[in-house]
Amino acid sequence: MMNRILPIISTFIFSIVSFVASAQSDIEMADVMRSNGKIYIVVAVLVIIFLALVVYLISLDRKASRIEKELKQNNS
């Protein structure tokens, strides 16, 4: 009994697995860009741009703090 069912089940499972695998590879993603690591260059560029904006925001923030302090001293 087991000898007959096992191949059927395994064939069934295998066909599902292969179907899912083929469905996945059918849809085009940037797999090449990922495998050769060039995606990291894009990520690095975006991170640098964002950090540049953050540095600018921080400098604005500190400048505001400095002027606030100055005003406080002048008023007292």
């Binding site: 996945q24 849809i27 085009e28 993603m29 940037a30 995606i39 990291y40 894009v42 990520v43 975006l46 991170v47 964002f50 950090l51 953050v54």
Partner: peptide
């Protein structure tokens, strides 16, 4: 806020995303 946005830039591009037709990456 900075950490979360950085994480979104890095993780958003590098982590696995579902493979869907038309949308792709």
């Amino acid at each position: 806020g900075i950490a979360f946005v950085l994480y979104a830039i890095i993780g958003g591009l590098l982590m696995d995303a579902p493979r869907l037709a038309i949308l792709n990456e």
